[in-house]
Simulated scan of single mutants.
Amino acid sequence: MTAPQVVVFDVNETLSDMAPLAARFRDVGAPELTDRVWFASLLRDAFALTAAGGTERFATFATAGLRSILAGVPLTRELDAAVEHVMSGFTALDVHPDVPGGVRALKQSGRRLVTLSNGSAGVAERLLSTAGIRDEFEHLLSVEDAGVWKPAPGSYAYAARTCGVQPADMILVAVHPWDIDGANRAGLATAWINRDGRPYPEYFTAPTHTIAELPELADRLAA
């Protein structure tokens, strides 16, 4: 198998550590685990709209979903203020500790690095700039420009066209099994980051590589 030329990174939860958002939900009076229910519901609705042939921006799903899930909750502030408090947390997120070293190792190996997010390119820009690794990336891509959300095949095809390569020349890096499966079916190699030791769902196609931390990937690709 030819080693991939382009490494495509998912952003939300793969590069960014979204755990601090839980504190934002607690701040506004939401019950424990509301952050997880909200994010899962956001993805569910986005995937459903994509399957039906529609599309919408991440921020629209996120904000509308927050309003729905917080409705009826005895909040510590007005609903509009609660939604703003949670959403502003996205601009304060940091990358996972393993990300900077892993990104630099892949770049030093001579590979091209890009992101492909269901969120906005602006969020990725702030995240990577704050981490001091923005310059390692050639493109910060968003499905907002692809017209379909991941894991629809068109999202990965958009990334390949933008980079001027075939899907087989790319490897997707993600923590989400649904993203790994979508990329596999679109013809990309894949690397699943399993930071918490969870089993991989058997109903999805298996990743090309499974790693516990990002720095492992450069060694895998060099082998």
Rank of each mutant, 00 (worst) to 15 (best):
2 T>Q: 11
3 A>N: 14
12 N>Q: 08
13 E>K: 00
14 T>S: 04
16 S>Q: 02
18 M>K: 02
20 P>Y: 02
21 L>K: 00
22 A>K: 06
22 A>P: 02
26 R>T: 13
28 V>K: 01
28 V>M: 04
30 A>C: 13
35 D>M: 14
38 W>K: 10
39 F>E: 10
44 R>N: 12
44 R>H: 11
51 A>F: 03
52 A>G: 03
54 G>D: 14
57 R>D: 15
62 A>L: 10
67 R>K: 11
80 D>A: 12
85 H>W: 07
85 H>E: 02
86 V>A: 07
89 G>D: 07
89 G>C: 09
91 T>K: 06
98 D>L: 01
98 D>P: 04
98 D>N: 03
99 V>R: 08
99 V>D: 00
103 V>S: 07
105 A>V: 02
107 K>I: 15
114 V>Y: 00
120 S>A: 10
120 S>D: 06
125 E>T: 11
125 E>W: 01
125 E>Y: 06
126 R>Q: 08
128 L>F: 00
128 L>R: 03
129 S>V: 15
134 R>D: 00
134 R>N: 07
142 S>D: 04
142 S>P: 14
143 V>G: 03
147 G>S: 06
151 P>K: 05
152 A>P: 04
153 P>N: 10
160 A>G: 11
163 C>V: 13
164 G>S: 09
166 Q>R: 14
169 D>L: 05
172 L>A: 08
176 H>I: 01
176 H>C: 02
179 D>E: 13
187 G>C: 02
188 L>R: 01
190 T>Y: 05
193 I>A: 07
193 I>R: 12
193 I>V: 10
195 R>C: 00
196 D>P: 04
197 G>Q: 14
201 P>K: 09
202 E>D: 15
204 F>G: 03
206 A>V: 15
207 P>N: 15
211 I>V: 15
212 A>K: 07
212 A>R: 08
216 E>Y: 11
218 A>M: 06
218 A>D: 09
222 A>N: 12
223 A>K: 10
